[in-house]
Amino acid sequence: MATLKELATTQAEKFVGGHTSCAGCGYPNIFRLTLAAIKDPVVVVGATGCCEVNTSIFPYTSWKAPFLHNAFENSAATCSGVEAAYYSMVKSGKLAANNTRFIAFGGDGGTYDIGLQSLSGALERGHDMLYICYDNGAYMNTGIQRSGATPRYANTTTAPVGKVVPGKMQKKKDLAKIMVGHNVPYVAQTIAGNWKDLTNKVEKATAIRGPKFIVVLAACPLGWQTKTQDTVRLTQLAVESCFWPLYEVENGKYKLNDNPEAKGKKIPVADWLKMQGRFKHLFKPGGEKLLAEIQAEVDKDWNDLKALCEFHSKQE
């Protein structure tokens, strides 16, 4: 696995600045690091969303790798078509094989919600591609509307905190688990704020032939109502609170990549939530019950995940 110096100096960057993402945006370094971690030729297919609109306002493009955008809900299907074209034309001798790697991405809206069917189909068909979901937990591009990835009780513009409703009433979908259900060789969950874990997973995934999926938690200063300089730290705290554990599932076997609890570093989820304006109503009188509810949910999911990982490690 590459060191940071290797990532930074081995090849020219394939994702450059001058894009129009907000200051302190959480997703650009996912793509910078992903492309830095892949040495082979790569094609990137992006779903409509923040990343796509900010990086490709004509005639400006931040991509130095071939980049294709089709629509919102179909980056996986579109990427599967690129991949099929590559293998078909290599097979028929129209194209020289060059080990091209295929990457599709979408935000949480384009992945958890509107693009889920397209993604599910592409994974089931077994295309040799890596899908990366950058998950900032709402439709940030259109103005912070709730998505299937929005955490419980977060304030969004379509599930706003009101006098009787404390924000989004439903729990966040467990996307990685849904992807594991597709029996693909590699599924992983990581954060934008851990370059090593992220690039290790990208390197591991790109070495595998077949469909791979990585969901990456990324902070959004606008939607999370956080300070721009805290973007990296915020996702690290999501891991430390065990709200967003770092783990991977290789051929159906769960493995924790970091255990803050074992290191005695597990923090209360409230420590993570209180940094974010979208949860500020939880820290007003009456919020204790809601916070306790979130903490209980996080603990249950964490314990379930640990049990699953322990079960699989004992099998080996």
């Binding site: 940071l4 110096k5 990532l7 930074a8 600045g17 993402s21 370094n29 370059w195 990296v232």
Partner: peptide, 14 residues
Amino acid sequence: SCFTCWAYCPDSCM
């Protein structure tokens, strides 16, 4: 030159 700033700059400025 630990490159941590390089890893996390959203605007590729390092």
